[in-house]
Nucleic acid binder design. Structure first.
Lengths: 228, 228
DNA sequence: ACAAAAGTGTTTAGATTACACCCATGA
DNA sequence: TCATGGGTGTAATCTAAACACTTTTGT
């Protein structure tokens, strides 16, 4: 350890903090928990953990995700590394933010409750510890960029969904209304969804067709934006 | 140190690696140097350095930039954190890539030479150590995204420049030809450039007007892409 | 005079937007 | 029957892209 060529340099605690998004009741939500240890016991925090010697940043984020939701193979993306010297008053910690997309119905409720974690609507977040508010803000921007340039939905909705479900998800992500007719045409023109022929009558009397992703084409990028 | 609440966790060497871009002879270039210490002495590498206790990642990137080019107040942007466990065979180092934009004419040539650093055209890079090729690739993608959604040029060109200078810069960044007439109209429609009235005759007999950024409006985002 | 870069104008194809309108059905 | 979401059609507007054409001037 001390004989390695880099030993003259400082070493740092490195952590990951996960902005875990889900979608419920027409709202985009973020998983938060009341911090159980000093500093800031009781204040709301993202779910995070330290990076150990045998894992990458991505591994650590997956571990945090598994420990708190019971889920594996979750879509996640690195957002940004935060390194202000006093971002954590208890010690110098460099933290890398990740965002993840999960279906709220798939989580392990017991585990989530064990941590005292709660889902907060993105538009009504409480005050967060450290720089976690910045992490959420950047993550939302990244999610918007992603959703604007390719069709997302698989991760946050079920396997099948109506165009209206998808429209409401996009409205929740972009926090503004979208024209229903234009959205429908745009989405279908991408030719990545396939009509199952099954009608979902849970949201309207007429019923709306359920669609499913055609997986034979890998997620197709749309050159022109889906939503601005 | 050992009594802090996080002492049960591993600590890591953290470094920054800078993808320093410049523009010369109609080409986008990257600054590289032949590594002077093990492992991989003599192989080409990005310019990097370890993050010490009293500095942020951005500070460390600025320090590397200053030490190698003599420049301060350089545009830089964090790109991505790389953390594969064996990315550096000499030890576990988590490295955060930054890209920076400098004017080649402003650098301190003595300093650059002291490091044996050279400018390599982006299209003809040599083999790089570790995961540095990935860092360059991601940085170029980020630069393309930035240049595609807002007008850049101030950082890589001089204070004033012709529309043709700018077009050639964009061609170097995007590695494809751009229609001169359409580009000119697009750029001028953004209304962020102001004609100085001075003609530059160095590139043509007719001479082309030099433009300057109007700084009273902070860099304006263009909703529709400048170049795809 | 002519080559070469600077700069303008025109035309077409396609995308975006707003919005009118029909459809199906449960209450 | 009527309110409600589902779904289609259309016209006005904007943008991108291709390309023809004019201007200027050093050689």
């Amino acid at each position: 350890m001390t004989s390695n060529p880099y030993s003259a340099h400082a070493r740092h605690y490195v952590s990951v903090d996960c902005v875990i998004f889900s979608y419920e009741n027409d709202e985009l939500k973020v998983l938060l928990y009341p911090r159980s240890f000093e500093p800031y016991v009781g204040k709301w925090s993202l779910l995070g953990g330290f990076v150990e010697n045998d894992e990458t940043l991505g591994d650590a984020a997956r571990r945090v995700l598994f420990n708190t939701t019971g889920l594996r193979n979750i879509y996640q993306e690195q957002v940004h590394a935060f390194s202000d010297i006093n971002r954590d008053p208890a010690g110098r910690v460099i933290s890398v933010a990740y965002y993840a997309l999960i279906r709220i119905s798939q989580q392990d409720n017991v585990l989530v409750k064990e941590h005292g974690a709660c889902w907060w609507p993105i538009s009504e977040l409480p005050e967060l510890v450290f720089d976690h508010a910045k992490m959420v803000e950047r993550s939302l921007l990244r999610l918007q960029k992603k959703a604007g340039s390719e069709l997302i939905g698989k991760e946050l909705l079920g396997d099948t969904f109506t165009i209206t479900n998808l429209k409401k998800l996009y409205e929740a992500i972009f926090q503004h209304d979208i024209d229903a007719g234009n959205f429908r045409k745009k989405i279908l023109s991408l030719a990545v969804l396939h009509n199952t022929g099954i009608k979902d009558k849970s949201e309207s009397k007429k019923g709306a067709f359920l669609y499913r992703y055609t997986n034979h084409l890998e997620d197709q990028m749309s050159l022109s934006p889906i939503v601005k």
